[in-house]
Design a protein around this nucleic acid. Structure first.
Lengths: 254, 254
DNA sequence: CATACATTTGACTCATCAGTAAGTCATTAT
DNA sequence: ATAATGACTTACTGATGAGTCAAATGTATG
């Protein structure tokens, strides 16, 4: 990506991160104490660049351009390129801690409810931080070992949570699927992929998308007949099934 | 990724692409006429590298190392780095042409059948070419304009096919979803994400995974009541119900 | 054996990019 | 007013990596 000659972010689908100069008066305080603000903007801009080009494919000069400073100016705020990624990931894992806690709480409810709640919350998180999510995803190969390790642990935890819920759903006869592991990976895919197509300024509000995806996840696993009775009690489901069997046998004979 | 000092493909999870020398006698013909063979190996190795590090993040020397030649040797087979990517994409789009045709044929069936068939075939393609799929996905930002254009057209076509099927399913009252567009994107996510977790040498065979994902996609959209009439044969339904009853009775007792 | 041809190498060039060092300059504290 | 300092800049270094090219190393064929 040898830096198109003309400008910087010339792509047509940009919409975010573009800015040629701090435009004289940014917040009243023109220069001093602007540091923290710039740092934030830098992380935001870096997130967009890392998400699009990956860590290795991102040029610090492009980052500087976005902020309207020169390349070495970046080094005032961060000691090196990798620290930017680390700061970004730090931020993202921090913001996902709340989510994990929330998920852990729900895990022991009725499987259908649990799956819906956990899936909605997990999806919401992705839709609220789509760029960060993409960075995480794109930079895996370039992450320093320690960060990669943490990231993998977190991914594994999510997968296990889902698998666990699904297994419980199967045990009480509410879910049906060939393999809980594959099923968990698949619904995680529904959620994760959303980070790549969801448009925060689009037609459909985030909450609604999250609800839709969570609903699809649940329905993709619910045993068809279980839909009938929304009861949690296995005995109820069994009774209904038996009624159905009796009915069908009658139909066949009659 | 400044090239770990020691070796080349030191990661523990490698399993594919590793080879230090063409090992004396490769196919009997040691050197002459080896060109086509090396070219193939090169594309394969490049696919793995591009998939892992992205186009920009891939070093041609790493590619050369995998093949047991030196970096300039690469230029005998391809004029430059970008042409390797192009050749790769060429190959991949060629192999997906068949799929598109197949999909087009199914689109006008009964929506449930159409969705299942199309989804299965689309998923199978991904599972058969997971590395290629990842390359496509990872290299989007680095693709030359013309290739990117073609790629986008193909993505859009798939999306529209799914959307169309879903809309028809809603129209005849068999599917239910808030937004067909979101639903289409979500089931595409189920499929696409599989490229990142599916292991061709894993426990579960490809066909089964494809079937499972296709089934989940269909069920995530089917209107609950429509499940009943899924099979035309009452006997089938009865048998399934009896299995369910047995299963539940077992659960209650166990 | 000699020649032609396929394949690969060593030794380059050139551009890019991460990171450093020293200097500038407005603002704020003294 | 002056010193300190926050937020830069210009001008470097050094590494890396893409791409070139004239040889070298075979290896098949006449």
């Amino acid at each position: 990506m040898p830096r198109k000659k003309g400008a910087v972010g010339e792509g047509q689908g940009e919409q975010a991160v573009k800015k040629a100069r701090p435009a004289e008066k940014d917040t009243g305080k023109t220069s001093r104490k602007r540091g923290a603000q710039v740092r934030k903007e830098m992380l935001n801009a870096a997130a967009h660049l890392f998400a699009k080009h990956g860590f290795a494919g991102t040029n610090l000069r492009d980052l500087a351009d976005v902020l309207g400073i020169t390349r070495p100016g970046v080094y005032y705020h961060f000691p090196n390129k990798e620290k930017i990624l680390e700061a970004l990931i730090e931020e993202v894992t921090l913001s996902s801690v709340g989510q994990s806690a929330e998920i852990a709480e729900q895990v022991d409810r009725d499987p259908e409810d649990a799956l819906r709640l956990v899936m909605r919350s997990a999806t919401k998180w992705v839709l609220e931080n789509p760029v960060m999510f993409r960075v995480l995803d794109r930079s895996e190969a370039d992450m320093p070992a320690e960060l990669k390790e943490r990231h993998n642990v977190s991914k594994k935890a999510i997968l296990e949570n889902f698998t666990h819920i699904i297994q419980r759903g199967i045990a009480i006869g509410k879910f049906r699927t060939v393999d809980p592991h594959v099923a968990a990976l698949t619904i995680i895919g529904m959620r994760n992929w959303a980070a790549w197509w969801f448009n925060p300024n689009g037609r459909i509000p985030m909450e609604e998308v999250a609800d839709t995806i969570a609903d699809m996840a649940v329905r993709s696993l619910l045993r068809p007949d279980a839909h009938r009775s929304r009861s949690d009690r296995v005995e109820d489901i069994l009774r209904i099934l038996k009624e159905d069997v009796a009915h069908l046998e009658h139909v066949i004979k009659g």
